[in-house]
């Protein structure tokens, strides 16, 4: 008994260490956003301080930040929605149909993620300028879509493959169309994979800095990560505002992940067979 207790204590301690390591930056960001400039720059650091919301008041008064968060929300939501909309039928086809060029198509999807984004930045910029997409939501949505679609296809194909074929055949026997089978069986049962890939797509689009920096120059269309870095110019580094902006940026994506992760349960197909 005591040995079991000692072991679980050790486990708990190990988990705490890992947790502290992972969460400390967040703590530092959030706590810094609540300090004034004096406390922030104090050395050694102040652990107990009088929290202030002045940094938040400052950034929310700044239209650039609120606008940027809104821009990010629009771009990330649209990208996520389109990735799932286009990616899940593609994944279903790759998971369950045999057709010519299937292996090549699969590799092409994956290879899109093998290229480092920066390699494509210049060509994409030139291309976007020529078709007149610079400084629009669409240019970011389309670029993010090309990066996110492979992830969605990849994860969902795997997820759909794990669904017993008997379900599809039974449905076919009962008169379900191909679309019925996708919509009523594969999509609901593939929810864990769809949720995971949606989280990936959203986080990627939300965090992306490089393309957002290159393709959007108009102040009113800038996304949150770009605006956060904008503080880092001039002679002064307003750490409090940067940290407050960081906190505001992290919040929606965390909420999204929390909500969606409820669907990431395993064993959803339990009870289908046997």
């Amino acid at each position: 008994m005591s040995r079991v207790n000692a072991r679980s204590l050790l486990h708990a301690f190990g988990l705490l260490v890992v947790l502290a390591f992972a969460l400390f930056p967040f703590y530092w960001m959030v706590s810094s956003s609540l300090k004034d400039q004096t406390d922030l720059l104090a050395s050694p650091p102040v652990w107990f301080f009088r929290p202030t919301l002045s940094n938040y008041q400052a950034i929310f008064a700044d239209q650039a930040v609120t606008g940027a968060v809104l821009n990010s929300l629009i771009v990330a939501s649209a990208t996520t929605f389109l990735s799932v909309l286009l990616g899940t039928p593609a994944a279903y086809a790759l998971a369950r149909f045999e057709f010519r060029g299937k292996a090549d198509l699969w590799f092409w999807f994956i290879s899109n993620r093998m290229v480092s984004p920066i390699v494509l930045a210049l060509p994409v910029y030139v291309l976007s300028r020529q078709v007149g997409l610079l400084n629009t939501y669409w240019v970011l949505i389309l670029v993010y879509l090309t990066f996110n679609l492979p992830i969605v296809v990849w994860i969902c194909t795997d997820q759909f493959r794990s669904i017993p074929r008997d379900l599809e055949q039974s449905a076919r026997l009962e008169g379900a169309t191909q679309f019925d089978i996708f919509w009523r069986i594969y999509l609901p049962l593939g929810i864990p994979g769809v949720a995971v890939s949606a989280i990936f797509a959203f986080i990627f689009s939300w965090n992306e800095l490089l393309y957002a920096l290159v393709l959007i120059t108009s102040q009113s269309l800038k996304t949150a990560p770009v605006v956060a870095t904008n503080f880092m110019s001039g002679y002064e580094l307003p750490w409090g505002k940067i940290m407050a902006t960081g906190t505001v940026i992290v919040l929606p994506v965390t909420l999204f992940a929390l909500v969606v992760s409820r669907h990431m349960v395993r064993g959803l197909t339990m009870g289908a067979t046997k």
Binding site: P164, D166, L167, Q169, S170, A171, R184, I185, L189, L268, T269, M270, G271, A272, T273, K274
Partner: peptide, 8 residues
């Protein structure tokens, strides 16, 4: 079906 193939 042998596996019953119920929609879970």
């Amino acid at each position: 079906f042998q596996s019953y193939a119920l929609y879970p």
